[in-house]
Simulated scan of single mutants.
Amino acid sequence: MFYFLLPIVIFCIFMSLRTLFIPNTLKGKLVSVDNFLYLGTVYLTVIIGYGLIYLLFNLMNTTILVEANKNSGHNMFESSFYFSAMMLFSVGNGDVVPVGIGRFIAVTEALIGYTLPAAFVAKVMSNKNNI
């Protein structure tokens, strides 16, 4: 099941990020509800996708996330999506730490988190010039 779900999740993340590079999908004003919802959807897709990747590795008994406070009472489902959001919007708080291959996965998510706003602004500005 892991080997079936992991490529699907990675494909969904890729397709969501791919929309940033398709021309002329955002038209109109620079600040609009459509642009806000578009960016929010891309962020949500990446958070859920990476959260599922962390969770799938955990379900395969591969430890890639370790909580600093073992007595926190959070389950792995909560920790996976929390860590995904923290890595996308910042570089984490240190309360959940990646280990092993989780470090590489976290680096790719952080890279996407840093480049996503710049790609979005570039896309909106290029569409403004094409109108």
Rank of each mutant, 00 (worst) to 15 (best):
F2V: 10
Y3D: 13
L5R: 15
V9A: 15
I10T: 05
I13G: 04
M15I: 15
S16I: 05
S16L: 08
F21Q: 11
I22L: 14
T25M: 14
K29E: 13
L30M: 15
S32D: 06
V33Y: 14
F36Q: 11
F36T: 10
Y38K: 15
T41H: 11
T45F: 13
T45P: 13
V46Q: 13
Y50T: 08
G51T: 08
L52W: 10
L52P: 10
I53H: 12
Y54T: 12
L55W: 09
L55P: 07
L56V: 10
L59M: 15
L59K: 15
L59W: 15
N61L: 08
N61S: 12
T63M: 14
I64T: 06
L65Q: 08
E67K: 15
E67S: 15
N69V: 07
K70I: 08
S72Y: 02
N75F: 03
M76W: 04
E78A: 08
E78D: 07
S79M: 13
S80M: 07
S80P: 02
A85C: 05
M86V: 05
M87F: 04
M87N: 05
L88P: 02
L88R: 02
G92S: 03
G92Q: 01
N93L: 01
G94T: 04
G94M: 00
D95P: 01
P98E: 04
P98Y: 02
G100N: 03
R103I: 07
F104R: 00
A106D: 03
V107E: 04
E109G: 02
L111I: 07
G113D: 04
Y114T: 04
Y114F: 06
A118N: 03
A119E: 09
A122W: 00
M125H: 06
N130R: 08
I131M: 06
